[in-house]
Design a binder for these strands. Structure first.
Lengths: 191, 191
DNA sequence: CATTCATATTGAAGTGCTTCATTATTACCG
DNA sequence: CGGTAATAATGAAGCACTTCAATATGAATG
């Protein structure tokens, strides 16, 4: 990036992202990373910043992962939504469109569109459901299966690189904290 | 949610989200949360799942936070982008549009649009920069400042609720791991 | 059998972005 | 001073969604 200016009249424009910068990272007394810029911005506020800093870091990490995935999806001519459908189909086999909507946290309207697109691209096909003739099941085509398996394998390697330097215990702890947070948030969101 | 069916012909449709379900959480031998559904899906694969599980949890947590923020932003008639601009202006004071683009990781085109919208809503105004007459600075109006401060206060409380049950050390660790991940990912993304 | 409900599909409109190209000012540099 | 570069604003197109409303078809139920 770097679009037009950068005339540095301000405090310290090193920033990026959401509501706080990242770029410059420092380490606290315990050797843990923190965002220098962000901590500066928070200093004048008289609040406990540990929650805010952690959540900001999490949002940034989430956004970064999402960007990676998006970039990576469109490298293979897929959107995030379409990629999600294909992963789902790879894991659970063929499946009614309605289930996809539920599982991917989406709407029927959207699923119809995603599957339309995937079908046009020859990656997925619609097959009638003999048990319920209202229902339509989506299924990976041979080409689709091959494509998504390759993507998955490639993605796995990316993932291993991204967690470089983290122990299994670190990862388990990260997982735990994230899920705990999700649990709390779900209550907040009422559901 | 719950849009049309749910006819349970499949393995276990408890799912949601990205490439793995969450809803049902269990605890491993160390007492840490994990996603039951996800672990089931991964079992047949013969890979080390700790990275995959952790990253999936992180993506889900990130998505959840984003959804909360979005919902919350539009409750105040703001998009995420506009909210980002306003937070930025609250923290760093008035600032050239170009800096906003850099700091928010966006493009000039987009910033122009966001500021247009905010100006229409009376939350932000454009002021000429006497130092550089090409440049235009964005500044919160009185109404804008009041609005964003209220939003920030309200948001702080949300954040505290969402981290309920986590110690300061947990939060510091979460921050650390997320930032480490961001650092790795940045290298991956080449930049 | 008749109603009602579930499973999609379709169309229209809107949102919030993105990219690309063009233009008008103004600053900077040789 | 004159050419180049930086700072925007603007318009046009496109993408991936979202919501809402309407329709067709089949299942389930009383």
């Amino acid at each position: 990036m770097k679009h037009f200016n950068m005339n540095e009249t301000n405090v310290k424009s090193s920033g990026s992202e959401i509501h706080g910068a990242v770029h410059e990272l420092g380490r606290d007394e315990a050797g843990r990373l923190y965002s220098v810029h962000m901590r500066e911005l928070m200093k004048p506020l008289e609040v406990d910043t540990s929650a805010v800093e952690a959540l900001a870091a999490l949002r940034i990490a989430g956004k970064t992962l999402r960007m990676m995935q998006e970039r990576w999806a469109e490298k293979h001519d897929l959107s995030e939504g379409r990629l999600g459908v294909m992963f789902r189909l790879l894991r659970v086999g063929d499946c009614p469109l309605g289930d996809l909507a539920d599982e991917l946290d989406s709407t029927p309207r959207n699923i119809t569109g995603l599957v339309d697109h995937l079908e046009r691209d020859g990656l997925v096909e619609r097959v009638p459901d003999p048990q319920d003739r209202r229902s339509v099941r989506a299924r990976l085509t041979a080409a689709g299966k091959q494509r998504i398996e390759a993507i998955w394998r490639e993605g796995l390697e990316h993932q291993f690189e991204v967690v470089g330097g983290m122990s299994k215990d670190d990862l388990a702890q990260l997982r735990h904290l994230c899920l705990q947070l999700v649990e709390n948030a779900r209550k907040e969101l009422g559901k």
